[in-house]
């Protein structure tokens, strides 16, 4: 029973981390930007889901595609107007810029919605599925299904569509992609939009399982970074694996060490990976070089 719960929770949280980390890794892989504001896109996604559910009374999972589209547009615009200006600057400039953007979004969230914690509760929030002595809350089951669907769609998109192939090509060899006719500036903006859309979906899913506020994104940016480093920075598929590794480590760590360790575990893992295996678990090469 306990081990079953452990697996369900691990898969659910792992899937969310995977989605968060994949978006973070895509942006780094394509345009060499470590997006410190990634967590704030998650926060915006959580509020979008919250307000749509509260105002329109729809099921939270129905809001996900709409908030993905909204955050795609937002991310696309942010890249075109702001991020594109620092792509040729040193990585510190991208840090400063996205840190500023993060501050701005968090404070905009505080002004707009206040600092209090909120939760999204669908009508079936307390229902459980009883299956041969095992009880699983419906909500977690739906989150699990949604997570699997999003990851499957992302993988299909990246391997089967023109745009997905263009994004991969740009991440692997920007110049060669450009000389094959890929409009890399357009791909930068689309990638940033896609990353924000993934963050938005993750935010919507988190809002259903955890209470949240304007600061919810701060630890999640750290986790996105950990997940991306675990997978080999810049590798999207690596980040997908990394998400599950981090989630199971966190949940296992909490069981073994106690709840106060939950957020510390990510950073212990980050430290260990950076020291012992800086190329990440899969051992893939970094897609892009760090410009300092």
């Amino acid at each position: 029973m306990e081990s079953f719960q452990f697996v369900v929770n691990g898969l659910m949280l792992g899937g969310i981390y995977a989605i968060v980390g994949a978006g973070f890794a895509l942006v780094y892989g394509v345009m060499n930007v470590l997006n410190v504001a990634h967590g704030s896109f998650i926060m915006i996604g959580a509020y979008l889901t919250y307000w749509t559910v509260t105002l329109l009374g729809v099921d939270p999972f129905v809001t996900l595609p709409a908030s993905a589209v909204a955050l795609f547009a937002f991310g696309y615009l942010v890249q075109r107007t702001v991020i594109s200006r620092v792509l040729h600057a040193s990585i510190f400039m991208t840090f400063i810029l996205t840190f500023g953007l993060d501050m701005f979004l968090i404070n905009a969230g505080l002004v707009a919605w206040g600092g209090s914690y909120r939760a999204v509760r669908p009508s079936y929030a307390d229902d459980v599925l009883i299956m041969g002595g095992l009880t699983i809350p419906y909500v977690r089951l739906v989150v699990l299904v949604a997570v699997v669907a999003v990851i499957a769609l992302l993988l299909l998109f990246m391997s089967k569509t023109r745009l997905g192939i263009a994004i991969k090509a740009t991440a692997l060899e920007r110049e060669a992609a450009q000389l094959a006719g890929v409009d890399v500036k357009q791909i930068d903006a689309i990638t940033f939009g896609l990353s924000a859309a993934l963050a938005g979906v993750a935010g919507g899913l988190l809002a259903v399982v955890l209470p949240f506020g304007p600061f919810m994104g701060v630890p999640l940016t750290g986790k996105a970074f950990t997940v991306a480093v675990l997978g080999g920075l810049g590798s999207m598929t690596g980040a997908l694996y990394g998400g599950f590794v981090l989630a199971f480590a966190e949940i296992g760590g909490v069981i073994a060490l106690g709840g106060e360790w939950a957020d510390g575990i990510a950073f212990i893992i980050l430290l260990v990976v950076l020291v012992l295996r800086p190329r990440g678990l899969l051992g893939k090469e970094f897609f892009a070089e760090v410009k300092v």
């Binding site: 094959a180 006719g181 890929v182």
Partner: peptide, 8 residues
């Protein structure tokens, strides 16, 4: 394929 998709 990248050439076929994005070239002329």
């Amino acid at each position: 394929m990248v050439g076929a998709l994005f070239g002329r």
